[in-house]
Design a protein around this nucleic acid. Structure first.
Lengths: 256, 256
DNA sequence: CTAAAGGCTGACGTAACGTCACCCTCCAGC
DNA sequence: GCTGGAGGGTGACGTTACGTCAGCCTTTAG
C-alpha cells in the first residue's frame, strides 16, 4: 500500500521532482518517511495529490491550492474568485491582442499617411493647423508657430521621419493604454501625455492654452482626426480628453 | 540634454530599478557613464526606451524586444509571431475557464446525482450495469462483479462518498484535459485513464475485455452517459474513446 | 560644513519546477 | 561477500522582470 516517489510519479503522471517540490513547500508531505530518508505515500496522499492536480489544471497557484485544501468548506468560493481572475486575464489578453493588431497596422502598410505628416500631423501640416487654431481662438494662440518653424528650418527628410516614427509609436502606446481601459485623466495616462506634450512642444512651443485648444482641434480637424484614427479608431476622443486633462492638471490651464 | 536615472524614470514613467535592470541585461545601456558610475541618458536612449516600452506593453518578453530592436527589418514579422502566441494563450485561458465552470457545476449543486451513484455510477448502479454488460457480451464479462460486490460489502456510506468524490474529481480532470484539446489516445490522456482504470478495478475487477466493453456501455447506457455528461456535456464520447484506447494500448485488448 | 537627496552596487524574493552534480542505499547476480 | 545498476536523497543554479532592502558614496542646498 505504500508507494515510493517514482511509483506515485508514474501513477499520477507527474515528475519525481514535482513530488519533492510539493513536499518541500508543505503541500503534500509523504504519509511516512523512512529512517533512510525515503518518502512513502499511502492512499490518503494519492487522494490529496489528485485534488491538487485538478486544481493545478485549473491554473490555481500552489499556495492557493494549499489554502483551499486546508479549509474544505469554501473550495467553491475560492474557485469562483479564481474564475474572476481568469476572466480578467483574458480581457487583458484581448486588449493586448487588439493593440498588437493596431500596432501591426500602424507599422506596416499604411503609407497612405505620409511619414512626414506624422507626430499628429504637426510637422508639414503645421501651417494648416495654425490657421485652424488662429481662426478659432484668435491670433495669440498660434503665434509661437513662427519660432517653431524657424527651429525646424534646417531639418531634412530624415529628421522628420525620425520624428514621425517617434510620434507613431507614441500614438500606438496611447492606443494600447486606452484599450487596456486606462482613463484619459488617470495618472498613467498623464505620464504618457507628458511625452506627447514634449513632442508637440518641440514642433510648436505651445503653452497651456494652446495645448488645451489643440485637444478640441484634434477632434474637429478632419486631417488630424483621420491621422490619429488611422492608428486606433477609438483613439481620437480619448486623446482629445487626455490632452485637455494634461493641460489642466499639469500645465495649470483654466478657462478663467 | 543628458538626463540622470531619476529624470528619465519620471519622464518615461518607469522605475529607476527598471532602468538599472535594462542596463544590466544590455537592453538599454546609458549613452554615457561618468567616472563616478552615474548613468546619463541622451535623446537616442529616450527614443529607444519608448520603443521598448511600446513592445513591453504588447507583452513582448524583454529578450525578444532586444532582438527586435537589434534587427529593425523584421519587427513586423516578430510581432506577428508574438500575436500568434497571444492568441494561443487566450485559447488556453478559454479552455481553463470552461473547465472551472464545469468544476463549479460539478462540485456545487448538482445533488440530482446522488453521491453514491458516482465513480461513473459504478457503485450502487453496479447491478444494473452488470446486467447491461452481461446481456450484451455474455455472462463471462460481468462475472467478476461478484467478487467486487463482496469486497465492498463492509463499506459504509462514508466509503462510498469518498469514492464518489474521488471519481467526480477525476471526471473533472478528464473534462479539463478534453477542453484543453488533449486527444483520448494521447499519452497524457492515457496517464489519466490509468487512474480511471484503477478506480473501476477497485469496484469491479475488470480485465481488458470488460474495460473495453465498458467504453461502449458508457455511451449507450442512459444513466452512465447522463452521469458523465453532468460533469462535462462533451465528455461521454471522449471518455468512451479513452477507455477503449486504454484497454488496447495498456491492457493489451484485441478483438481477435 | 553638514544634512538631505540621489546615485551606486550587491543580494534576496517571487512561481513552479527542470536540470545537473554528487552521494547513498537497496537488490540481484557472480 | 562483492559489485553494478536502478532508484533514493540533498543541495543549488536557472528561469521573468523587476521590488525591496542594506550599506556606502556623491552631489547639492543651506
Amino acid at each position: 500500500m505504500e508507494r515510493t516517489v517514482s511509483q506515485v510519479a508514474r501513477l499520477a503522471g507527474v515528475s519525481v521532482r514535482t513530488l519533492r517540490h510539493y513536499d518541500a513547500i508543505g503541500l503534500l508531505p509523504p504519509g511516512h518517511v523512512a529512517s533512510n530518508g525515503y518518502r512513502y505515500y499511502g492512499r490518503a496522499e494519492l487522494l490529496r495529490l489528485q485534488r491538487i492536480l485538478l486544481l493545478r489544471e485549473l491554473d490555481v497557484p500552489l499556495p492557493a491550492i494549499g489554502r483551499i485544501l486546508a479549509e474544505q468548506d469554501d473550495e467553491i468560493a475560492a474557485l469562483r474568485d479564481h474564475r474572476e481572475q481568469l476572466v480578467q486575464e483574458r480581457q487583458r489578453l484581448d486588449a493586448v491582442i487588439g493593440s498588437v493588431d493596431r500596432t501591426l497596422q500602424g507599422l506596416s502598410g499604411d503609407e497612405s499617411v505620409g511619414d512626414e505628416e506624422f507626430f499628429a500631423g504637426l510637422s508639414t501640416k503645421r501651417s494648416e493647423l495654425q490657421e485652424d487654431l488662429t481662426e478659432r481662438f484668435g491670433p495669440g494662440v498660434g503665434a509661437s508657430f513662427e519660432a517653431a518653424v524657424r527651429a525646424t528650418d534646417g531639418w531634412g527628410r530624415e529628421d522628420y521621419e525620425r520624428m514621425a516614427d517617434e510620434g507613431r509609436r507614441l500614438l500606438l502606446r496611447l492606443g494600447a493604454a486606452r484599450a487596456r481601459g486606462v482613463l484619459p485623466d488617470s495618472p498613467e495616462a498623464l505620464k504618457l501625455m507628458q511625452l506627447h506634450y514634449q513632442g508637440v512642444y518641440d514642433l510648436w512651443q505651445a503653452d497651456a492654452t494652446g495645448y488645451y485648444n489643440l485637444g478640441g482641434v484634434l477632434l474637429d480637424n478632419a486631417d488630424q482626426r483621420a491621422l490619429i484614427a488611422s492608428v486606433d479608431p477609438e483613439l481620437p476622443p480619448w486623446l482629445s480628453a487626455a490632452v485637455q486633462a494634461y493641460a489642466i492638471r499639469k500645465l495649470g490651464y483654466s478657462s478663467h
